[in-house]
Amino acid sequence: MEQVASQIGIKGIREGLLISVPDRGSFADLVALLNVELAQKQAFLQGSQVALQVGYRKLDKEYLRQLQAVFEQNQLELWAVLAEDPSAREAARELALATRLSGSQTDLNGNFLSQMPEPGTANTVASAQPAQGGLILKETLRSGRSIFHEGHVVVIGDVNPGAEIVASGDVIVWGRLRGLVHAGALGDETAVICALELNPTQLRIADQIAISPDEKRGRTIPEQVAIRNGQIVAEMWQK
């Protein structure tokens, strides 16, 4: 069971959370795995709506009911099941679960194409309230790691290329930032990104996107990134 633990992927999408689980292995293993994973992360996942990506796994109505119960126990609401197997999709529909994400915002891998909320949707209401709670990670985020957090994120360590952080609040990296960071992901344009060494693949604040200039930057000074006059700009941290 340990071997598949990290096969559970959790990422934030506009509709809430997208949780993907492995195709293979027994159903009992899957339930156990979900319980462990959700219990660990309950503190910051709870209350979310969940779209569950099950790949080619065959699931009937009874299995889906059990999964619903698993999420309910962890204070999550299952609202969609993304399945490759037609009979699993049929079963999901019979339980009044959605079987695709609205507006096809996902690519074939279920990766969310655009994490920007449309103005006027429910999500912008959430941004009216300041982001609460901070997540502190004392580790280096390596390629493939994905952090989704409603609130601020502080990383004490590096963010390597291929890693991503999506936060509704600010993101502070006490180390080298070389991956992707999306601050103010729910539309907060006052969110900032700070790093001791700023060399990201891409930065996003609210619905703005910026990429680093191509030339190699020799500078290794702390910088802060914010939206100024509708544009993402990096400023040296010299106050």
């Binding site: 390596r142 390629s143 493939g144 790691r145 390597n160 290329p161 291929g162």
Partner: peptide
């Protein structure tokens, strides 16, 4: 990049 992923 892939080695980084593996280490993670």
């Amino acid at each position: 990049r892939d080695a980084d992923r593996i280490i993670g």
